[in-house]
Simulated assay, not measured.
Amino acid sequence: MDRLIEPLPALESMRKYPQRLYFRGRKELLKRKMVSIVGSRRPTQYAAQAAYRIANELAKRGVTVVSGGAMGIDAAAHRGAGPRNSVAVLPCGIDIRYPAVNAALLDAIAAEGVLLSQFEPGFRAAAWSFVVRNELVVALGSALVVAEAEADSGSMRSVEFALKMGKKIYVLPHRLGESEGTNRLLQSGKAEAIYDIDRFAEIFSEREPALEEDAFMRFCAAQPTYEEALEKFGELLFEAELEGRITVCNGRILPV
C-alpha cells in the first residue's frame, strides 16, 4: 500500500481534508472525471441492473465510477464500470477486504483500478467509519447517483453530504412504496430523475466521438483481427458492425 501525497482538489469540499489517504492501484484514475454511485445493500433487481448499466455507460465514456465496495448497489456499480474504471473507498484499512463476499472484486480493483482508505492498515470497520467513508465517496464525484435508498438509510446520509457540497444529485424513478428516500428527493426537487441512461452518461462524457471514430476506421484499414479491434475499441466495434461500416472475414476486420 502507499500513501497518496498529491492533493485532490475535489476533497476540498469535505468538512476537513483527510489527514492521510492510503491507496492501492492506478492513482491516475483519480485525475479523470468521476461520478459517485451509491444505494441499498439489498436492492431490487431493477435498481441493481440500472446501476450496473449507468456505471457501464459512464466507463465507456472515460468516466471513473466511485463507490464504497459494499454489497448491492456498490458492487453492481463497480462491476458495471469494470475494475479498470473503478475507485472503491473502504470503511476499513486498505489491507482488509470488507465485505468478505466482495473480496475478489476488491482484489481486482486493487490490481486494475484504485482502492482508497482514510484508515490505518489493520483498522476494522466500525459504525462511524462508514459515515467517514461515505463523505469521501461523495466528495470525489462531480455528481452523486443514488440508485435506491430508504428514507433512513446510510445512502441518505450521503445525500446530506452531497447537498452540503453543492453536488448535483440524480436518482432512478421508482414505483410508489419503493425507495422512499429517493422518491422524497424527487418530490422536494433536490434530485433529478434518470430517464435515459445513455443521455445521462453523455453529460459526463470525456471522449471525443469524432476523433475516436476516425481512429477506429484508420485502425480497421489495416485489417486487424477481431480480437485486436475488440480489445482496443470495445463497444465501438459492435456499433460499426451493426451499422454495416465494417465486416468480418476469416477473423479479420474489413472496412466496407
Rank of each mutant, 00 (worst) to 15 (best):
D196H: 12
I197R: 06
I197T: 09
D198W: 09
D198C: 07
R199N: 04
R199H: 06
R199M: 09
R199A: 11
R199L: 06
F200P: 01
F200E: 04
F200K: 02
A201Q: 06
E202S: 12
E202M: 05
E202I: 01
I203W: 05
I203L: 12
I203C: 00
F204G: 05
F204W: 14
F204L: 06
S205M: 03
S205W: 02
S205N: 03
E206N: 03
E206M: 10
E206I: 00
R207F: 01
R207C: 03
E208C: 10
E208T: 10
E208Q: 11
E208A: 09
P209N: 06
P209D: 05
P209V: 06
P209L: 06
A210S: 13
A210I: 08
A210K: 13
A210W: 13
L211E: 15
L211A: 12
L211P: 00
E212M: 04
E212Q: 06
E212R: 00
E212A: 01
E213I: 00
E213V: 00
D214Q: 11
A215W: 01
A215Y: 01
A215M: 10
A215T: 04
A215L: 14
F216C: 05
F216W: 07
F216V: 00
F216E: 03
M217E: 10
R218N: 12
R218P: 00
R218W: 05
R218C: 07
F219H: 05
F219L: 09
F219Y: 09
C220S: 08
A221P: 02
A222V: 10
A222M: 12
A222T: 08
A222S: 13
Q223N: 15
Q223C: 10
P224M: 07
P224N: 07
P224I: 05
T225G: 15
T225V: 08
T225C: 06
Y226D: 04
Y226S: 10
E227W: 00
E227R: 11
E227G: 07
A229R: 01
A229I: 04
A229G: 05
A229D: 04
L230C: 01
L230Q: 08
L230F: 10
L230V: 11
E231Q: 12
E231S: 09
K232F: 01
K232A: 13
K232D: 01
K232V: 11
K232M: 09
F233S: 01
F233M: 03
F233T: 03
F233W: 08
G234K: 02
E235Q: 03
E235W: 05
E235A: 03
L236Y: 09
L237D: 02
L237Q: 02
F238A: 14
E239S: 07
E239I: 14
E239H: 08
A240H: 12
E241Y: 14
E241I: 07
E241W: 09
E241A: 15
L242E: 13
L242A: 14
L242K: 14
L242Y: 11
E243N: 11
G244V: 06
R245Q: 11
R245E: 12
R245A: 05
